[in-house]
């Protein structure tokens, strides 16, 4: 599927001619992209191709040099730093390769933190966090600190945190990259389940198995450009 054959379903992500330069280096070179609600899109490509930069500009973690990025109706180019923070808080959930949990907080508080920052009272935030941990199968580890969790458990906690504010878009940066194959499979199942209940998903990965298993569309990026797009039939 390309931008030309997009349907009438509302777009969660709309990129138009996005370019990102770091000094003389061009990370993104005029990328246009549309992701519809409920889609699961995998971005693949060799190292240094611009995958992570693409994820960062969509998440509002980085600003493009030119072009526009609209996510769930928010034109990120029009938002200041505080606006971007509020955008991330309300619209985006992120999962990282190395989990990025706060070592000083137990699992439950790591998850509840996202809602508490949005002003949700601690008891409500904790209740919701516990529900999510329960759904993801790690409720029993709610009082455990990140350093004492296994890699899979950490990533489940990270996923729970990403889902805490019911984001319009879940972004995953190499979500299985730091996990062994068995745990990686579990995380793949989790992402698939989330997408099947309607969660829009954009993941950056090197892992062909993850892409083919979880994504409905794969975008390949080379030298900052979309080299190829393919639609997949999921098993």
């Amino acid at each position: 599927m390309t931008m030309s054959d997009e349907g009438n379903e509302p777009a969660v992500v709309q990129l138009s001619d996005v370019r990102k330069e770091y000094g003389d280096a061009v990370a993104l070179d005029g990328i246009s992209l549309r992701i519809r609600a409920g889609e699961a899109v995998a971005v693949m490509g060799p190292s240094g191709s611009g995958k992570s930069t693409l994820l960062n500009v969509i998440a509002g973690l980085d600003r493009p040099t030119s072009g526009s990025v609209v996510v769930h109706g928010d034109d990120l180019g029009r938002l200041d730093e505080k606006g971007l923070a509020l955008f991330r808080r309300r619209r985006i959930g992120m999962i990282f390769q190395f989990f990025n949990l706060i070592d000083d907080l137990p699992a439950l508080d790591n998850v509840a933190l996202a809602a508490q920052l949005a002003g949700v009272a601690a008891p409500h935030a904790r209740r919701r966090a516990l529900e999510l941990l329960d759904e993801l199968g790690v409720a029993g580890r709610r009082n455990t600190y990140p350093a004492q969790l296994s890699g899979g458990e950490r990533q489940r906690v990270a996923v729970a945190r990403a889902l805490m504010n019911r984001p319009a878009l879940l972004l995953a940066d190499e979500p299985t990259g730091a996990l062994d194959s068995r745990v990686g499979e579990q995380v793949m199942d989790l992402l698939l389940d989330l997408n099947q209940i309607g969660q829009t998903l954009l993941m950056v990965t090197h892992d062909e198995r993850l892409a083919t298993r979880c994504a409905s569309r794969v975008i390949e990026i080379v030298d900052g450009r979309v080299a190829r797009e393919r639609t997949l039939e999921r098993a």
Binding site: A85, L86, R88, R89, N100, L101, L113, L117, A162, N165
Partner: peptide, 11 residues
Amino acid sequence: MLKSIGMTPGQ
């Protein structure tokens, strides 16, 4: 990480 989940610069 905190900023990535929505902590504002002011916070």
